[in-house]
């Protein structure tokens, strides 16, 4: 029993960091550009596909393909910004529709390119056993990768000029412009940075989806991102850590609880539904999130 709980907490923690990274990159755009990038999940899925194809075609393991993902993320960020996002900055409603359409376009593009088949890689590095809990080393790697990236984001946001400019723009674009921040450039690099992080987090996600990579997996990811972001405070990157932790735990605990309570339920396909209930619940109780809005 105790070991069961320990394993739930442990795997919940693993997932929490992966989800947090996804949501932090999502929140960066919300905070700075004031738009909800509903196509963000598709960027993450692109990252996952890059990890998959590097494994299949070049035999690169997901760690080796991280730089490749990062570079592709930068490129995708630049392309998307100049093609679309530039015209949507600060325009809430138009941005919602356009990025929603973009998410459909991107997932459809992936379907056209790589078919709708479910794919996955069989990357294993053995596993560690702590009493009766078995932890695959790949999980540890992926989570460590997420933690390092989150620390890196923290460092960039608080210790570099670019990060400070980003935070200034998030608080007040006009005031930052008066203080000499090049707002346009900052917005561009902010979006590119977020896109790069999305690809990286997608790349790290590959170990958690051993058979589940498909063009439409973005819909669950974006639903989860929205829930975590709202939970922690929309546009607040660090709220995503707390939100990620809560959702990661819920995701581990829920199937077990559900199976115990409701007989005949398929807990794993039911879990995403829990996000939705959680979302409505948060909006009902504390719509500004645990840590409040933009930071």
């Amino acid at each position: 029993m105790l070991e069961n709980i320990a394993s739930i907490v442990l795997f919940g923690l693993f997932l929490a960091f992966v989800y947090s990274l996804q949501t932090i990159s999502f929140n960066l755009v919300v905070g700075m550009l004031r738009i909800l990038n509903l196509a963000h999940a598709e960027l993450i899925v692109f990252g996952t596909y890059i990890a998959y194809w590097s494994w299949v075609l070049f035999n690169l393991d997901p760690f080796m393909s991280l730089p490749l993902s990062a570079i592709m993320g930068l490129a995708a960020g630049f392309a998307l910004y100049y093609l679309l996002i530039k015209k949507l900055v600060f325009s809430t409603d138009a941005a919602l529709i356009a990025t929603f359409a973009l998410s459909l376009v991107l997932s459809e593009l992936m379907k056209v390119l790589w078919t709708a088949n479910y794919r996955g890689i069989s990357w294993t590095l053995g596993s560690i056993r702590i009493s009766s809990i078995t932890i695959p080393v790949t999980y540890i790697c992926s989570t460590l990768g997420s933690i390092v990236t989150i620390l890196l984001i923290y460092f960039i946001m608080y210790k570099t000029y670019f990060g400070k400019a980003c935070r200034a723009v998030a608080i007040d674009p006009t005031a930052s412009a008066i203080c000499g921040v090049n707002v346009k450039k900052t917005l561009l690099y902010g979006f590119v940075f977020s896109s790069c992080l999305a690809f990286i987090s997608g790349n790290l996600l590959v170990v958690y989806a051993p058979t589940g990579i498909n063009p439409y997996m973005g819909s669950t990811i974006i639903a989860r991102c929205l829930v975590i972001a709202t939970l922690g405070g929309l546009g607040n990157p660090w709220g995503a850590l707390i939100g990620g932790l809560i959702i990661g735990m819920i995701e581990q605990i829920m199937p077990i609880v559900l199976m115990a309570i409701v007989p005949g339920i398929e807990p794993f396909s039911f879990t995403p539904f829990i996000y939705f209930m959680a979302y409505l619940l948060i909006l009902l109780i504390k719509p500004e999130g645990i840590l409040g809005g933009r930071r």
Partner: peptide, 18 residues
């Protein structure tokens, strides 16, 4: 807008899950 989107995405899981 987000709420309406989240419900749309969650609904099929509810049907499949139950």
């Amino acid at each position: 807008a987000c709420g309406t989107l989240v419900v749309t995405l969650a609904a099929p899981y509810f049907i499949s899950g139950t």
